[in-house]
Amino acid sequence: MFSYLIRRLLYAIPILFGVMLITFLLFFVVQPPYARARAILGEKARPAQVQQWLHDHGYDKPTYLNTKPGQHLFDSLFVNQMKRLITFDFGVSDKTSLPIAKTFTDGVIPSLCLTLPAFVIGFIMAVTLSLYQVFIRYSALDRFGVFLCVALMSIPPMIYMFVGQRVLAMQLNYFPAYGFDLRGWQTAKFVLLPVTLMIVMYLGNDVRLYRTIFLEEITQDYVRTALAKGVPQSRVLFVHVLKNGMISLITLVVAHLPFLIMGSLLLENFFGIPGLGNALIHAIQTGDAAMTNALVYLGALFYLAGLMLTDICYAFADPRIRLS
């Protein structure tokens, strides 16, 4: 098992390097630092100002190799950027010159306040509903359920937010319409509506997906055996099928992991939750490439971490891997 995990870890490294390469190509080659400086400082900036900005941010180096006499060969944008990303030294934001790491540490908690409850409750709801649908499979109600799922996922997420804020918060006054406050139960008050909306947004997609997985699972031999030896159908579904289906579900769930930490872009921005998603939207709006770069890298890192976690889960769940 140990060698299996090491192998998986080694597999992640070239992928992470690939991600670093993609972000470098996008943010340093396609859009050279000079263009970034122009975008931030404006078209009217004097050349000296641009030079100073480039120097302050460490962008006044050659792209790949530093061949200037008297300077270190590897003192280039590429090598420096790689070093920075590996050591998690994200530097400062292009726009505000505040350290990016600070934005992250500030933003993680508000993001998790929104996404963690939404994820846990949403997952439990989706699994329960999809198992129930499998229980009554191919009935009229099941078909209607599938249709409803497709309908739910065909509505753009913004519409849920508009309607939720307008109707639930502003007209019925059940929730505050906007804002965030990190103070115990005060937080819950602000987060309740976004959490509800996030659950509804993903529910249709998840239920439909899980239903397919569980439907595949009930054609397996062990289900027939269990039914033949007289296990009630509900127990077969909610114990046997659920356990086995979980193995396939883990992979799907991990795909959500980056969003747990990155938060939901749309919801955070719309309801004024100062999380990472909001930070990303600000970065887009202000053309802050350093911030976007760091967030993209971080998102990939979370994804790969999730992938490793899946592998560990698999190793525990599946004796064939554990004993190999």
Partner: peptide
């Protein structure tokens, strides 16, 4: 497999945003 694993590692929405922001 390596190429698509790499692109897949970047969450879709982040990749789209970064790509459009730059180009």
């Amino acid at each position: 497999q390596y190429i698509y694993s790499t692109i897949m590692a970047i969450p879709d929405i982040l990749f789209l945003i970064a790509f459009i922001m730059v180009f």
